[in-house]
Amino acid sequence: MKKSKKTKEKQSKVQVQQSNWRLKVAQQKLQVLGFSDERPSGRMTEATSTALKSFQKQHKLKADGELNDATYHKLTWEAFAKEGIPKVKGKEIVSRAAKYKGVPYVFGGTTTKGFDCSGYVQYVFKDCKAKLPRLADEQALQGIFVTQKQLRPGDLVFFTTYAAGASHVGIYAGDGQFWSASSSKGVILSSLKDDYWKQRYYGARRVLITNGEVYK
């Protein structure tokens, strides 16, 4: 069965978005490691290519300034060792997350008077003396990618809701559930298996070093 032109165009668009996201992550990691001060954009620039070449030379990789698989994986692991949150355990994060059950949703909220999704996640981590950026799409650049099967309590899960990309974030609690500040119900424990979240799942990131490395 041949794929329709519309299907091919949709797949092509998704591939471009994934490629841009991968590059955006790489640009953030180059910042973390001190190879670049360029703001992550998801677009290949001369500055990004130069930074990649420098990183590749230092780690004895093919220095062509391209973001190949070997470079991407080495880059993310080196950055994780530096930017990953040490000592704090996933169970501690989940325990703090549950503490704020029922706090109402407030767009732009960052306190116990009202949270938005990323404000809630940032607050919980701060409560455990750990730092995260303020916005969901910034939080989605942190740490390393993990699949749903690799999720551990304290990992971050992302969804595409009101805007393209990572526009909603939650804290994985274990057993297929996660805590987040829902716009309709405030801070609540939800299931990844719920149709609403299942259809909007975007990906997950590991920011806690204590949650361990990921082996494919």
Rank of each mutant, 00 (worst) to 15 (best):
K91S: 13
Y72D: 10
E66Y: 15
L132I: 07
A136N: 06
A130Y: 00
A81L: 14
D137W: 09
K82S: 09
D137T: 09
E66D: 15
K101I: 13
N68K: 13
A51Y: 03
D116V: 06
K60H: 04
T76E: 09
K101F: 12
Q122Y: 01
L132G: 03
A63V: 08
M44A: 15
G84V: 03
D127C: 09
L52F: 01
G65D: 03
V121D: 00
L67A: 08
G108R: 01
G114R: 02
Y123P: 01
A70L: 14
M44I: 15
T76I: 08
D127I: 02
A136M: 07
K87N: 11
M44D: 13
R43K: 13
H73P: 14
T48H: 09
T45A: 11
T48N: 07
L75G: 05
A51L: 05
I93M: 05
V106M: 06
Y120R: 05
K101D: 13
V88A: 00
P133F: 01
E92S: 05
K87L: 08
Y120N: 02
K74N: 13
I93N: 00
Y120K: 06
F55A: 06
C128Q: 10
S49I: 14
H59K: 06
Y72A: 12
T50L: 13
Q139S: 08
D69F: 11
N68Q: 11
Y123T: 02
